[in-house]
Amino acid sequence: MIAHHPASVQPVDLDLAQVRARMERYAPQVAELVRRYPVRRAILLQVLHLVQQEFGWVPRVAIRWAAEVSGVSPVHAFSVVEFYTMYRQVPMGRHLIQVCHTMCCHIQGSEQLIAHLERRLGIRCGETTADGLFSLVRVECLALCGTGPGVMIDDQAIGPTPHPLGGELREEHLAVPNFHPTPAVLDAWIDFLREQAARAPHPGRHHEHDALGGLIIGSAGHPGAEGASAQPLPADYAPACPAFKVAARRDGEQAVITWVNDPLLTVRCTVERSQDRGASWQPVAEVGGKEQRACVAQPAGVAAAYRIIAHEKTRSARPSAVVEVPG
């Protein structure tokens, strides 16, 4: 069966200029998104979510708008829309009921639940009820396996008690002991939403939730991006890497000192010795940044303390902890 013919459902009265006008109200979001990425095309997926919020689905002419805003070719935007399952290319009912039918939900009875919903709504999966209120689709795993079968209505997993959609999204299914969407729960939701729809006419927009989940407007953005104020990280944002985990042991007439330092940044390490309990330090060895080990002569019977100073290309770290090698 051929599921749908997107070509045949495209609105004939919608042109690019109209889409631009309708999407004008998302200008702050778009400007914010542009700030966030070093390249403009990265906003494409987010912009398409905004399109879907506005239209309830993604008409092709709106894909052109998204491509224009993201600075990509229309066909690239189209291939992206075709790749991701959440972008609906045909108009959906006011409420989209998604039922997961993958492994765990299958075990928990998703097929029975789908059969029930199909009976109850009088439609098959992939279809929309005649009153345009509900669309029913099967989807793959929704990460709701613990409260399976996973059912989402619009943008959220359903809880046991129906409540109006829109406004804040709730995650009640997580808090209720032993909750599973049963046919009875689904019936309650359907009845409730029908009742709601009877009382309030269609709000005009399909998605009643903010598609970007309360995008924070006014961020500093990505350094260098259009309209961003963020500055790149200075190279010395953190202390130079010292030698740490210093250990020392005596090996005959020698002291063997081992430590850990950043092998990628450290150019060399200086081993310093003190024989006056830290009052003065003399360098006794220099080793490369990758060696992390040094042997210095220390005659038997002489006690000494050692510490390491790691050097990066342009700066030196604070001295390491002091280790003592007894006489």
Partner: peptide, 20 residues
């Protein structure tokens, strides 16, 4: 900028996927 008075700055952005 300059988290907790340090020289380190970090911005975190949420990116919404689209089902894949």
């Amino acid at each position: 900028e300059r988290i907790a008075g340090s020289r380190y700055s970090l911005d975190i952005f949420v990116h919404r996927g689209a089902g894949a």
